[in-house]
Design a protein around this nucleic acid. Structure first.
Lengths: 108, 108
DNA sequence: TAGTGGTACTCGGTGTTACGGGGTACCCGG
DNA sequence: CCGGGTACCCCGTAACACCGAGTACCACTA
């Protein structure tokens, strides 16, 4: 599937939030996770951008820890604000996707 | 629901395409349609921006016709390229939304 | 020991998209 | 004749994802 990028705007951040909410993890692994999930062309730079934004907005907690196979990793986990934001994201997603699906099905 | 705007990026154009594909219609009516559909804060300027983009990209056919209740309307309908684009949009939507839903459900 | 490839993060610039606000203009009823 | 609904357009702004380049750590190998 080519060029999903525009459609991901505004949802990719939520996806990252969900992944981080599931377990404490770091940028490089999140990118891999997204790629495996089917978002094949999501690229590292994008994920790091999102993570820095989440950090700036106070939605995550960060812990730097050494790795045995490369440079140190920045592990992210959600704080309360982050969990709240995540819940909000899913509410929005449900709303938007239901609207769009209803438009698709004859759309009344 | 507040501030869905970011989540609509990349999908709003598809929604307009779908509406135009359903019947020949014009900007002002499309805006109303979207508002009724639940996208309450989609605003006229946005729809016109999209319509002009569709026109520029050769996805629609345009016909100006007088109105009995105001200034003339620009009626839009899909051409072959537009129908193709619309089919593409729904394919992308299905793909993306299924991926995101699967992420939501435990995400394997 | 120099080189390669995988791991891991950061930054600056770019393009696309939707919004906000203003402007123009047509039409009808009071 | 003037306000409000109808109808369109344009310009500037903000958000978001991408791209490319840079830095740096580690293990393996020739």
């Amino acid at each position: 599937m080519e060029n999903l990028t525009e459609m991901l705007k505004g949802t990719l951040e939520g996806c990252v939030l969900e992944i981080v909410g599931g377990e404490e993890t770091y940028g490089y692994a999140i990118t891999r996770r997204l790629n495996d999930l089917g978002f094949a062309d999501v690229v590292e730079g994008t994920v790091y951008t999102i993570l820095l934004r989440l950090e700036k907005n106070g939605l995550v907690q960060v812990a730097k820890r050494p790795s045995e196979v490369g440079p140190p990793r920045k592990f992210y986990s959600l704080n309360d604000a982050g969990r709240e934001e995540l819940a909000m994201f899913w509410a929005k997603w449900q709303y938007v996707s239901s609207r769009i699906d209803s438009l698709k099905e004859g759309g009344r």
